[in-house]
Design a protein around this nucleic acid. Sequence first.
DNA 1: GATGAATGAGGATTCATTCAT
DNA 2: AATGAATGAATCCTCATTCAT
Lengths: 240, 240, 240, 240
Amino acid sequence: MESKKFVLHLRPHSRIRMVALKTFNNLTEERQQEIILICLEEFALNEFQSASLSTIVSKLNIAKGSFYRYFESKQTLYYFLLDHCIQKRLESDQKTITAKPSAFFELMIEHLVGKMRFDKKYPLHSAFLYNVMQEKNSDELGNIQLTVKTKALEAVKPLVKEAVKNKVFRKDVDIETISFLVYRMQFTIMEYLELKYKIDFRQNIKNQRPLYDVSEKEVIKTAKTFLEIFKYGIINQEMK
Amino acid sequence: MESKKFVLHLRPHSRIRMVALKTFNNLTEERQQEIILICLEEFALNEFQSASLSTIVSKLNIAKGSFYRYFESKQTLYYFLLDHCIQKRLESDQKTITAKPSAFFELMIEHLVGKMRFDKKYPLHSAFLYNVMQEKNSDELGNIQLTVKTKALEAVKPLVKEAVKNKVFRKDVDIETISFLVYRMQFTIMEYLELKYKIDFRQNIKNQRPLYDVSEKEVIKTAKTFLEIFKYGIINQEMK
Amino acid sequence: MESKKFVLHLRPHSRIRMVALKTFNNLTEERQQEIILICLEEFALNEFQSASLSTIVSKLNIAKGSFYRYFESKQTLYYFLLDHCIQKRLESDQKTITAKPSAFFELMIEHLVGKMRFDKKYPLHSAFLYNVMQEKNSDELGNIQLTVKTKALEAVKPLVKEAVKNKVFRKDVDIETISFLVYRMQFTIMEYLELKYKIDFRQNIKNQRPLYDVSEKEVIKTAKTFLEIFKYGIINQEMK
Amino acid sequence: MESKKFVLHLRPHSRIRMVALKTFNNLTEERQQEIILICLEEFALNEFQSASLSTIVSKLNIAKGSFYRYFESKQTLYYFLLDHCIQKRLESDQKTITAKPSAFFELMIEHLVGKMRFDKKYPLHSAFLYNVMQEKNSDELGNIQLTVKTKALEAVKPLVKEAVKNKVFRKDVDIETISFLVYRMQFTIMEYLELKYKIDFRQNIKNQRPLYDVSEKEVIKTAKTFLEIFKYGIINQEMK
DNA sequence: GATGAATGAGGATTCATTCAT
DNA sequence: AATGAATGAATCCTCATTCAT
């Protein structure tokens, strides 16, 4: 099924390993998940630089040294988490999405709904991915913005191309722009919810609550509204 | 003039003073500007937590203690800079914007163009404001996202309301959503430029270069495209 | 054959075992050699304290625990390596040296040449031995300088005594001093080469290259020059 | 006076500052000396890597952070100490040395005696300089061996050249070799004393004792013996 | 008999802030 | 009024060694 590509689809940063060390993989599945969640929490609450391995380690009740037997470094951990969350998201999408690629906007709706469910089910994963998008470039992470976003865009583009072939979009806008707007949509909606419902993601994460406490129905309505505007424009057609 | 409200329009965070201490205000205007620029650079390159007062102080060639005679704390400085940049932006806008509020989309274009010129003229201010939007909430900064964005929205809303009265927009979308999309537009465009031209804002700031090296003509073309889609939608009308 | 004594000839430090554990000896000869070489590399590049067992273990692809089944401790390993290298050197010497002890300076030349060949053939062993000479005394290693050098001197002394009997040396210098100068010679030459040819032993080891890239002919010429001066002095005899 | 050049004469490593920070220079002379001595002790007892700033800081009874207001880094401290000790040594030499450069061997003797007195008076400085000579090259210190020794050699060379002009030395040995042997002499003697009198420099430093507890008369005798051999050679002239 | 996970103190360095001078 | 020295907890990361499995 081609639809699975309509998601973030990262390839490893050339120089940075995004894998855990053997020791980590040898832990029980439960312990691994526990560790991942604690780490995600820290990186969902803080940007890379400010996130503290000490905090993580103390929450995990392990020795500092032990942690470094799981992950080579803070960076490796970060990229491992990134990869992990993307995988999770991919899996999540593959389950939800059933629309044919030809029905582009149905696909988008499905994808957005999938995203919302993902947010509910994996708030930490979702919040972390949200954070990554806002991460500043740095010597440690490289031009992560460009890397991540470009890859995400590249995942969207083929679907857009297909739709272009089917003459879904107006002809005067190029594929790049459309792809960007499509990709941007989910974050725009998230940000809108944040504002409208005065959500403090950080507080919710801290308190182990879902990212946002809005009914799925409500969220879908919002998503549909945004998509409607995206499709037909904001102006009053009658006034034209 | 009403148009000046179509910009970020912050009110001080309730508990945090956003003013410099008297000592700072006693400095010569040049020195004040110098200090502000150095500080902006640091906060444009780093998020709040990671920005270093030590770095600032060393670049300014002043004593640590002196700095604390200018500003009460790192937070005070941050909010002072925020206020300062917003003022700068307001002033900038007031000069550029001439369209009547009734011609909503002309106003938006003007506003976007104004934004681009502001970026060129005050790259540090602009980059800092961009950063603020991505700042994480924290104990030190409070729910800054909500605060800043809400205020910005509130500035946009009256204009939107006016336009709604003039039946500019389709009726099935509420004012909140429209206002949000209007407010969001400028950042969307900025992010698009970043991706399309593979711009690394951080590198440009570091190298004392403009935020992005794209001709104004090019930028305006992009802005118009986005606005066009915003107005009329993305779908192929003929296929409807 | 007596000549074999004209080399470093250590006896174990009283309290420290210099042997590998049984487990190590049960390994195949190849594996043993492999382990020794990796360890030597680490101790040739770093002094005792800074050398890292972790590095060694990771290069060897064995478990940390396994390593401690081969050697009791870092110190034991160090002294084992020391013993091993000295043995190697002894063997090497026994093959090369043919001169009779009576022909003292011929013996020295042979010995020096042997040393150079050893350097080429076993750069790691040689570099390690060089390092040992510069090792600082410490609680962990004891007065290793004194120990090693004294033993080395003791190996030289009988030969010198024999030569003294044969009236090879001037009478106003005692055996201790002569022995010391004889023993010191090889390191002096090595240091001279390092300086003259701007050799960075460390880099060469890292890059798996020979210790120094100087033709044997050149080295022998140097050695002969030094020995000539040692024998006849530096001053212009004609000016006396 | 030209003779002052017959000592280590370093120029700053191109990339590494060898100066203390302003804060350090503002301390009282006594405190500065105290700090220097404690640091020298640590670097006299340990090589660069193993020397611990924590130890230094705790001996100095200051906060970790305070130390970094005196010196930029461990490396800077190291090079500062190196420079300091060399200066001390230079000053010491300038006081002692009175012989004319033409009387080369008298000059050497004076220089050696000066060295011995320096050892007594400034055991920590002397021990540190001794250590530097044995320091391993590393990423942190660069090819320090080559740097330091080459510079030292360059300081010796002009004197040797002068003596060569005066036909002091045999003609079949080049200036490089002679210079090296001259430079090497002082360390050879030091090493000899260490062996002969079973001196443990490290213990003596630890116990705040002089580097070695040998009468100056004895030391001078030794020095003269070595020089005698250097001049006239080791062999029994009568037997020639 | 071999493994490899765990340890926790130690490493160098940076930080925002205070306060005596 | 201005300085700049002092703080000490925080940062990430490495270490040799142990011991339960």
